[in-house]
Simulated assay, not measured.
Amino acid sequence: MSRGWTAQDQSDSTAVLTALGNKYSAEILCAAGTPKSAQTLSKDIEIPIATCYRRIEELVDAGLLTCEGRQLSEEGRRTNIYRRTVDEVGVNFSADEPTFSQKRRTEAKNRIQDQLEG
Rank of each mutant, 00 (worst) to 15 (best):
M1C: 09
S2K: 08
S2M: 07
G4S: 11
G4K: 07
W5E: 06
W5Y: 15
W5N: 06
T6P: 01
T6L: 13
A7P: 03
A7Q: 09
Q10L: 13
Q10I: 14
S11R: 14
S11L: 15
S13V: 14
S13T: 15
V16G: 00
A19G: 02
L20C: 06
L20T: 02
G21I: 11
G21P: 04
N22L: 10
N22A: 10
K23L: 15
K23V: 15
K23I: 14
Y24I: 07
Y24T: 15
Y24E: 10
Y24V: 09
S25P: 02
I28Q: 02
I28M: 05
L29W: 01
L29K: 01
L29R: 00
A31D: 06
G33R: 07
P35V: 07
K36P: 00
S37Y: 02
S37K: 01
S37W: 02
A38C: 03
Q39T: 08
Q39Y: 04
Q39H: 10
T40A: 13
L41S: 03
S42T: 03
K43C: 05
K43V: 07
D44G: 01
I45A: 04
I45E: 05
E46I: 05
E46F: 04
P48W: 00
I49M: 09
I49V: 10
A50R: 15
T51S: 13
Y53N: 15
Y53H: 13
Y53T: 07
R54F: 01
R55F: 02
R55K: 08
I56P: 04
E57W: 04
E57S: 13
E58V: 00
L59D: 04
V60P: 03
D61E: 11
A62R: 02
L64I: 03
L64C: 01
L65P: 00
L65S: 00
C67D: 10
C67K: 12
E68P: 00
E68A: 10
G69A: 07
G69Y: 05
R70S: 10
R70A: 10
R70L: 09
Q71H: 08
Q71I: 14
Q71M: 12
L72C: 06
S73M: 04
E74R: 09
E74H: 06
E74P: 02
E75I: 00
E75Q: 08
R77W: 06
R78W: 03
R78G: 01
N80A: 12
N80W: 01
R83W: 02
R83F: 02
R83V: 12
R83Y: 03
R84Q: 06
V86G: 01
D87F: 04
D87N: 12
D87T: 06
E88M: 05
V89W: 00
V89L: 07
G90V: 01
G90D: 06
N92D: 15
S94N: 14
E97Y: 09
E97S: 13
T99N: 04
T99A: 03
K103D: 08
R105M: 14
T106N: 09
T106V: 08
E107R: 14
A108K: 12
K109F: 08
K109Q: 15
K109I: 07
N110T: 14
N110E: 13
N110F: 10
R111M: 12
R111Y: 12
I112Q: 15
I112M: 12
I112L: 15
Q113S: 14
Q113K: 11
D114G: 09
L116W: 09
E117Q: 13
G118K: 13
